Computed example of a mutant assay.
Amino acid sequence: MTPTLASLAAAVAAVAVVAGLFMAVAGGIGWDPGPARRRSRTEQRLRAAMGLGTSPSGPTAWWARRSSRFSAALVLGLLVWLFTSWPMGGVMTAVIMAGLPWLLNPGSGAKEQIARLEAVEEWVRRLSDIHTVGVSLEQSIQRSLQTVPKPISGEVTRLVSRLSAGWLPQDAYRAFADEMNDAIVDEVAALLILHVEDRGAGLGRALNDLAAALAQEVYARREIEADRQKPRTNDRWVTLFCLVIFAVSMLSGAYVEPYTTAVGQLTLIGLGIGFVLVKMWMRRMAVIEPTPRFLSSADRTAGESGKEGSA
């Protein structure tokens, strides 16, 4: 099939539209890290559904990590459009290529969260070793920056920066808990806040005990993820099978001829949307609601507003 000048121009225009959509998603969801802002539950679920994980990124890190895949997706989508005359086939190919990590790696967000929690456990244990008599908690945290585990290096670096900038320690620890967004990490922040208010002895022992509790939590979460690995593997194979069928069908000639019409293209869009909705439904069934946090910034804001109103 030889592409005409008109079809080439239309394909280029569509690729520009898809690129604009990608940039809009990058700007709206992953471009601004918002280090001290706790994301709403709806935003957390949206990010998890898109495979973005929970760790914050720098202003351009979201796009930098995905630029190569997006470029390849746009080129592949253009080629599919030109050589099959399926406008929506090209767009769907580009979207599928860009979303491959989300399609083939169900549960990646949970694994990332476990890795971050394990890093917190290691950091707390090192912090207990660093903290000695005569050394303040804030100084110990600053010294721990030299050996902080990589998964939480950004959060700890920002914590040290806030303390150095003159933030109240309580606010800095709460901001750290908001970034980690995990109920078990709230316990770490609560211990640090209590020490700021009391400055009593025994912090090193308390940190050691908390590190042991964190290690048990990591072990329990890994056991749960191991049990969920088999259905996720089945989901991955089903997805691969569907994608192969989609790729082969585009080259099958007369069998897919009806899809070249306007009605066929709309049908193709409906099938693609249905496939994504089924994937989201399957993932939703495997999601376990996290334990509610007790250091929620939203709860603190509501409490402060209530006090002002009663006054």
Score class of each variant (00 low, 15 high):
86 W>Y: 15
107 G>Q: 02
74 L>Q: 04
92 M>E: 12
103 L>T: 05
79 L>G: 14
105 N>I: 02
85 S>D: 15
104 L>M: 10
94 A>H: 06
99 G>Q: 06
83 F>E: 15
98 A>H: 02
71 S>Y: 00
80 V>I: 15
84 T>I: 12
74 L>W: 08
96 I>S: 01
89 G>E: 03
87 P>L: 13
91 V>G: 03
87 P>M: 12
85 S>I: 13
74 L>M: 13
92 M>C: 13
78 L>K: 04
102 W>L: 06
103 L>D: 00
98 A>T: 01
93 T>G: 11
97 M>F: 09
89 G>V: 11
100 L>G: 01
78 L>G: 11
106 P>T: 10
98 A>P: 00
94 A>G: 11
94 A>D: 01
86 W>L: 15
71 S>E: 06
107 G>L: 05
108 S>Q: 12
105 N>G: 08
109 G>A: 09
107 G>F: 05
90 G>W: 07
71 S>W: 03
71 S>R: 05
96 I>W: 04
108 S>N: 10
84 T>R: 09
85 S>H: 15
81 W>L: 08
93 T>K: 01
90 G>R: 04
109 G>W: 03
79 L>R: 09
85 S>C: 11
104 L>E: 02
88 M>Q: 14
73 A>S: 05
80 V>A: 02
83 F>G: 13
90 G>L: 10
80 V>R: 00
102 W>T: 07
99 G>S: 12
89 G>Q: 02
102 W>N: 04
105 N>A: 08
71 S>P: 01
94 A>R: 00
82 L>G: 12
74 L>P: 01
83 F>A: 14
105 N>W: 06
88 M>I: 12
85 S>T: 14
75 V>N: 03
83 F>C: 10
106 P>D: 11
108 S>I: 09
89 G>I: 10
105 N>L: 08
106 P>K: 07
94 A>S: 12
100 L>K: 01
101 P>N: 01
103 L>N: 03
108 S>K: 08
79 L>W: 07
75 V>E: 03
106 P>E: 08
75 V>W: 13
87 P>C: 12
82 L>H: 09
108 S>D: 11
89 G>F: 14
